[in-house]
């Protein structure tokens, strides 16, 4: 689906989401009469420091306004911008700041929903869609941590070997299904049905709190994370 089609299906009654230099800012009405704040990245834009302050500023404004309006994060991005200037000026702080703003918003009753509709990678993915309470994706989305050719360079294994290994373990290979199996993606939406309906459903369902490690265990994508985290927590809270 194109971005225009996605926005039309999410907001059949219209919206005020504006795209400017790859960044989406605005809001739209929900089916139940409520309102949702929208931020996003479009056209596979790499996420740099100038973009990040615009996104975080929009989130902070929504939190400051009070209320309980949810926040939708639409993502079709590249990775974080790889440049001397961005790193010189502290790109890690700008990415973390956006993530913190989204996490604060969610804790202050603004249910955050990420919708991955295209590409995303590495730090850009962590700071945006992955920092929401509920991450969903459209079929055909292509998240990656690192592409197979780069991974082949680092691991010194051929791409063919990596592809073969990817069949038996989803834990390192790029792609939506592999990532979903680790628990990062709650659900893959049906692009034939109204996105407005599916958004309304997910807003009513997903409870607060981070259950991604348990989901990854159920889906057999991350066998150990949930148990290790819980054991450490227990040991730390109840020292022998």
């Amino acid at each position: 689906m194109t971005l225009a089609e996605i926005l039309a299906s999410l907001f059949p009654a219209g919206h005020d989401v504006v795209q400017d230099r790859g960044i989406l800012l605005g809001s739209g009405p929900l089916k139940d009469g409520g309102h949702i704040t929208v931020i996003g990245v479009a056209d596979r834009t790499p996420l740099g420091i100038d973009d990040l302050v615009r996104l975080s500023g929009h989130v902070l404004k929504a939190v400051e306004a009070g209320g309980r309006d949810p926040i939708l994060v639409l993502i079709d991005s590249d990775s974080q911008r790889m440049s001397k200037r961005d790193e010189l000026l502290g790109l890690n702080e700008f990415l973390a700041h956006l993530a913190k703003c989204l996490l604060l918003a969610d804790m202050q009753a603004h249910h955050t929903v990420g919708l991955l509709y295209g590409h995303s990678a590495a730090g850009a993915f962590i700071a945006t869609a992955m920092s929401t309470r509920t991450l969903v994706a459209l079929p055909g989305a292509t998240p990656v941590v690192m592409d197979l050719p780069s991974m082949s360079k680092v691991t010194k294994l051929t791409i063919e070997t990596l592809q073969e290994k990817a069949k038996s373990t989803p834990v390192f290979a790029p792609g939506l299904d592999n990532l979903a199996q680790t628990g990062a993606v709650l659900a893959i939406w049906d692009d034939k049905r109204s996105l407005a309906d599916q958004l309304q459903t997910v807003l009513g369902e997903a409870a607060a709190g981070d259950r991604r490690d348990r989901l990854g265990k159920e889906r057999k994508g991350r066998p150990k994370a949930a148990d290790i985290a819980e054991r450490v927590r227990e040991l730390a809270l109840h020292p022998a």
Binding site: A122, F125, M130, P170, A225
Partner: peptide, 11 residues
């Protein structure tokens, strides 16, 4: 273990 590692950062 890129997917597990990436998700652990977010967690």
């Amino acid at each position: 273990e890129a997917n597990a590692g990436e998700l652990s950062i977010s967690e």
